[in-house]
Every structure is written in C-alpha cells, then in structure tokens.
Write a protein that binds this DNA or RNA. Structure first.
Lengths: 228, 228
DNA sequence: GTCTATAAACAGATAGAC
DNA sequence: GTCTATCTGTTTATAGAC
C-alpha cells in the first residue's frame, strides 16, 4: 500500500474529507475497532499492525506513534459523522410547525436507534467514542466541537419548536441530553439489556421494540399522546 | 496493617459482608478509584500500591495478582450496593396504590440522581462499573446477578404498578432501562453535559435542574401531568 | 504480613536494509 | 513506503530477608 501522511491543514473546511485509504486507512479502522473493543492502553501496537495487515513500524511512520493513531481515529469518527449527517445542517425554517418539528425529531430518533443498535459502524464507533469521553479530556475537544455540539444544537432547535420552549434554554438542552442518554444506554448497556430481556443480541424485532419505547417517551415528554 | 485473605465461602448469604479493612481494603479502594478513572490496563500495580500506601508485592499476596484485585473491586461494588439498598428488598404490598408506586419511583429517582451526580462514591463507582460492563464479560456476571438484576426487578414492579402494566412485560422492562439510561448518562457524559450547559461541574443547583428534568420525563412517561 | 530486589515478559519507538 | 531486527524502558510476578 502507498500513502503519505496527510497535510495538516484542510484547504476547504466546509467539505467532508475523503475516507482514509491504504495502510493508513487500515490502521485507523483497526484502531477504531480495537481501541473501542478493549481500550487504548490494553491494545498493543503489534495487535494493531496485525489487524491492519501491516507491521509495527508503519504506525510510527504514518502517525508518529500510538498516540497519533488515536488522534487520527478521533478525527475519523468526526469525519464519519460529517459524512452521514452533512457538514452544515440547514437552519430551521421560521414557519416550521410544531408537529413537523416533532415528526423530524421522531425520524432522527429512529435513525439514531437503528444506527447504534444495528449492524455496522454502530458497534464500534460508540464504544470508541465513549472510551474517549471517559478518558483523555484532550481528545474530547475534537469530539465535542465537531461531533456533539453541532448536532445537539440542531436537536435543541427542533425540541424547542416542537414543545414551544426557547431552544436555547437550559430546560431544552437538558431535555435533549436526557433523550439522547436513553438511546445511548441501549448501546452501552447492551450486554445488560439483552440479558435481562432474554434477547440474543439486537435483531430487527428487538430494535423495533426499543424504537417503540423511546418514541413513546419522546411523545410523552413533548406532551402529545400519539406519534405524529 | 494486618489482614489475612478472607475465606471463600460466606456462612450467611443473606447478611451484608463488612467493608474490607487494612491493606486489603486500601488496595480495593485504590483499585476502584484508579481503575474507574484511567482503566484497568492503564493502571500499573505500582500506582495501585502507592495509592494504597503499600508495596507492589502485597497485591499478589492479598489477591493473587492484578486480576484478583479487579475481581475484588467488582465484589466490593456489589457489597456497597447491598449495604446501601439492603440485601433483600421487601416485596410490594398487593394493595399499594398506583400513586404511591409513582411517588416511590420519583423518590428512588431523586436518590439515584443525587448519589450519581453528588460528591462521594458516585464519582468512582459508576465509572468503574461502566468500564467493567464495556470490557470483560466474565466480571459482568457478578455485577449483573448481584447489583443490576435485583434492582431492575424492583423498579419494574413499581413501574408496572404505577402505570397499570404487567411488571414482567417487555414494555415495562424497556421503560425502566430507558429511565435508568437517562440518569446514567448525566454521570457518564458529565464532561459533555457540563460543557454544553456552561456549568462548572455538578453543584446543588445543577443537580436540582437535572432532577427536575428526569422527574418531568418520568411523570410524562407514566401519563401523569404533575408530580405526585 | 510487609517489604526490597530481581526475574522474565512485554511495551513503544527506531535504525537501517530494501 | 514497507519491513525486520533491535534498543530501551516498563510491566507483572516472585523469591527471599525480616
């Protein structure tokens, strides 16, 4: 494989960067998976190199060291979120009715539940992200600024419109966090939830049940008896 | 300090074991704090010994090795939960009104929020617990059987009574998990929440705001407009 | 029971051939 | 760019004095 280390500056900050390829990309994907699964400290550079189909020295070559690979993984998470959700969400139209905002919140909720509980990135990205949030506060800056804060602000705007409250009020911000916390818990506590429910992992039927529960709470919190 | 390794069998399984003391107890407390803060793999035996005010060899002497200390920490978490919540919760009276069940749920919710967000064990125990749940599934067994399952069953009984649903139904079990997930998130995502809210940690006013939010969701989910 | 000294394995980083 | 071999520091576990 043949890739040079990337330039430090992005000439067009609005555009979504392309997915990393080659040895560099393989190492990042291995890092995302192994760091998320067993943790940063518990993952050796030899394991990373083997999982990526390369040698230990390439980690230092591409990222300067194990810490550099970690940072690259954080940036890759930010990039994937940008790629899925779009770089700059459109501002809310002034005349958006409350019911429409409610419906969009329900739609985004469903999408998040399916992403987090279904097969795919949802298994490794949240585990990695959570370990970063629990651990080094330095890397949290990247996660916060590029992944969390913009999306949270979007959801607050919708929640405010749907509930008739000020979207910048502490009450709305907390409500959105509580709502997101519910969803995240079903991924983070998956081992516990599936055991207690007698489930063998999250299949389509199980995901539907979780979706129904979270939408019910959303509708209740927004003071509406029925889904829009 | 002078303590022998404890006997393997507990002669009275109903009683709550006493808190570990001496060097053994100091090592467990150090493990709980450091494992929770930086993770198991990232914490060295030298750090543990220093934090406990003893030497590295005592870890092998008391627990057989670093893994043994980890296991002892898991059991200490289970013990603390038993000590605070009581070993065997009383079964729900048959004639408990829905409003009383709702009130008790609200009371337990407030207690959990204050425990998790306030100063004290709430800072280290959940972090430790979460890392265990994310990692080794072997230790999850102890946590699940002795900490999570009994408490979850209690809450399901209350939720069923308060909402008029079957407490053993999947819907109630999921509702309780979603409710707990909200609460846990404010501890796990504390770094994110406080930053977004512009808070400097969780003080009394901040805890009250979170409490209010979670009780509001609880009341809405139980289809009641106002707190009991 | 506590502690020092040490052993054996492993970590991440790097030099240098290709 | 890739890879092997190696350097240097640190890890856990243990032997043995007290």
């Amino acid at each position: 494989m043949s890739d040079a280390p990337p330039p430090d500056a992005d000439p067009d900050p609005g555009a979504v960067p392309p997915a990393p390829t080659g040895t560099r990309g393989a190492l990042i994907r291995a890092g995302l998976r192994l760091f998320g699964k067993t943790g940063f400290a518990a993952t050796s550079t030899r394991e990373l190199a083997e999982a990526a189909g390369t040698n230990v020295a390439s980690i230092a070559y591409h990222f300067g060291g194990k810490d550099g690979l970690r940072r690259a993984c954080v940036e890759e998470v930010a990039r994937r979120f940008q790629a899925v959700l779009g770089p700059d969400p459109a501002p809310l139209p002034d005349d958006l009715p409350a019911a429409a905002a409610h419906a969009r919140l329900a739609f985004l909720t469903t999408a998040m539940v399916r992403f987090l509980l279904g097969r795919g990135d949802g298994e490794e990205v949240p585990a990695f992200l959570l370990r970063e949030v629990l651990g080094e506060p330095v890397l949290l800056d990247i996660v916060y600024d590029r992944v969390i804060a913009p999306r949270h602000a979007d959801l607050c705007a919708l929640w405010g419109r749907a509930s008739g409250q000020d979207p910048d009020s502490p009450a709305v911000r907390l409500a959105v966090f509580a709502h997101l916390g519910q969803i995240l818990y079903f991924r983070l506590g998956a081992a516990i939830v599936t055991r207690r429910m007698g489930w063998d992992g999250y299949g389509p039927a199980e995901i539907a049940a979780v979706e129904a529960r979270i939408l019910a709470t959303l509708n209740a919190a927004l003071s509406r008896g029925d889904p829009p």
